[in-house]
């Protein structure tokens, strides 16, 4: 029980630290990461461009917790492990990306969790989310929650979904050891 609290406290702590410290030092920044500022691989996924941006992503995360209920907790606990992998995915998959902030890539990973743990409603959410991702990728639509000049990083959502599938496999192996 205590261990679970610790595991859930870690992503919450990361979110708190990344939100309170200056965004310039926390964001995922290609050049800074190349210069050795590796903490950005974690904090870049937890810091935001504005309070509105943070509120939007937190609301999405809360909605997933409501849909999936208690079984989503191992997925939340896995966020600090998935965050650097998602950052590396973004740096590799989007060569033009220089700066990134936002939790929504990890929210996409939680959407996979909702699809698996949240029953029919979770699966409907995942299907609709997938359709929205396709629409965003096709149209390059902007978000009203992001400041002017900041593009929506749909590859982060795609990366989150792929890492969500990998997390599903990993959790399945942990629950059903041979």
């Amino acid at each position: 029980m205590l261990a679970e609290h610790w595991r859930l406290g870690l992503p919450a702590g990361l979110l708190l630290v990344a939100s309170l410290l200056p965004g310039e030092a926390m964001e995922l920044n290609r050049q800074a990461v190349a210069e050795g500022q590796l903490w950005r691989l974690w904090t870049g996924q937890f810091c935001h461009w504005s309070v509105l941006h943070l509120a939007g992503n937190l609301a999405a995360a809360v909605a997933i917790c409501v849909i999936a209920g208690r079984p989503i907790r191992p997925w939340l606990a896995a966020l600090p492990l998935v965050a650097p992998l998602l950052s590396l995915f973004l740096l590799a998959a989007v060569p033009g990306l220089e700066r990134y902030r936002g939790l929504s890539g990890l929210v996409a990973m939680l959407v996979v969790g909702a699809a698996i743990e949240g029953g029919l409603v979770g699966r409907i959410l995942a299907a609709a989310y997938l359709a929205k991702l396709g629409f965003d990728a096709f149209t390059g639509s902007q978000s009203a929650l992001l400041p002017e000049g900041i593009a929506v990083a749909w590859p982060a959502h795609l990366g989150g979904l792929l890492l969500g599938l990998a997390t599903a496999g990993w959790l399945h192996l942990r629950r059903n050891p041979r």
């Binding site: 996924q45 935001h48 461009w49 941006h53 939007g56 992503n57 609301a59 999405a60 909605a63 997933i64 989007v94 033009g96 990306l97 220089e98 700066r99 990134y100 902030r101 936002g102 939790l103 929504s104 890539g105 990890l106 929210v107 959410l125 609709a128 989310y129 929205k132 965003d136 390059g140 639509s141 902007q142 978000s143 009203a144 929650l145 992001l146 400041p147 000049g149 900041i150 593009a151 929506v152 990083a153 590859p155 982060a156 959502h157």
Partner: peptide
């Protein structure tokens, strides 16, 4: 809009979907 500076955000439509 280029992807040089990007934000992970689901947008208002995404937020509506989650809600």
């Amino acid at each position: 809009h280029t992807s040089r500076s990007s934000g992970g955000d689901s947008g208002l439509a995404g937020l509506g979907l989650f809600g």
